[in-house]
Simulated assay, not measured.
Amino acid sequence: MMEECKVSIITVCYNSEAVISDTMKSVLNQDYSNIEYIIIDGKSTDSTMQIITEYKTYFDKKGIDFRVISEPDRGIYDAMNKGISIATGELIGLINSGDWYESCAISTMTDYYRKYGFDMFYADLRILRKGKSMIKKAKLQNYITTRDWNHPTTFITKLTYETFKYACHGIYDDWDLILRIRRSGRKIVVCNKVLANFTFGGISNRKNVKDAWSRFKERYKIYLDNGYSKWYIFECLLMETVKYFAA
């Protein structure tokens, strides 16, 4: 029975007092009940942990297994690996502080899992920036680009994560993981429905020529390391150019 499928949701945060509530509420308000929620905090120095603790009663009332670890880490992907290692769900989703799920996110994903089966799943994403929003569509095609994939909507089986971990090498470790999963031949399913919301910003979008050049080199190296054509250099240049000149 699909309702017996346990789903682990992991949120990585650090000094997120301004946004952590929105993320937690979105997990709390899911219309799916068999959830384990794990927060990996990087030893925040603001009121993040106080806010997290205040929500424990609400998760307990809904029967959601609520687990929190607050300790120093070696960056966001190290924290993600930490959360994945202790997750007990058959399916695992990662929603970072400041991002939030639609209330139907987990039920929609598990419905796809029941109907089609998959090793990895992702869906459409709503991106919010400067009071405006756009929908970033999920696609699965031979030409591989981050423009077709949305991390906040991604769910991967625990079994798959037992083989693939985040490398903890740079800011595009998430894309590196996706490329390795794709090359392995695992089954991937996409859903063209908005299941999560993302607020534009962060280190991967900073407008700085030096940062853009560094991101370009890292992205291109990931393509080459995973056996993709050297012609993906144009894809990497395009992505950083668009980010740099975006209004």
Rank of each mutant, 00 (worst) to 15 (best):
E4F: 08
C5H: 09
K6G: 01
I10W: 06
T11D: 00
T11C: 11
V12S: 00
A18V: 10
T23F: 04
D31S: 14
Y32L: 02
I35C: 03
I38C: 09
I39T: 02
I40F: 08
D41L: 10
T45R: 14
D46I: 11
T48S: 08
I52C: 13
I52N: 08
E54N: 15
Y55N: 06
F59H: 09
D65M: 15
D65H: 13
R67W: 02
S70A: 09
E71Y: 12
E90I: 06
L91Q: 02
I92D: 04
S97P: 02
Y101P: 01
Y101E: 03
A105P: 00
R114M: 15
K115R: 10
K115Y: 12
G117R: 08
D119H: 10
F121P: 03
R126N: 12
K130G: 06
K132M: 15
K132P: 03
M134G: 10
K136F: 06
A138M: 05
L140I: 07
T145S: 12
R147G: 13
F155L: 13
I156L: 06
T160P: 05
T160N: 03
Y161V: 01
T163L: 12
A167C: 13
C168L: 11
G170D: 04
Y172S: 04
D174K: 03
L179Q: 02
N192A: 11
K193W: 02
N197R: 07
N197W: 05
T199W: 08
T199K: 14
N205A: 15
K207D: 06
K207I: 14
V209K: 12
V209I: 15
V209E: 10
S214P: 00
I222N: 02
L224M: 13
D225M: 09
G227R: 02
Y228R: 05
Y232F: 10
M239N: 08
T241D: 07
A247V: 03
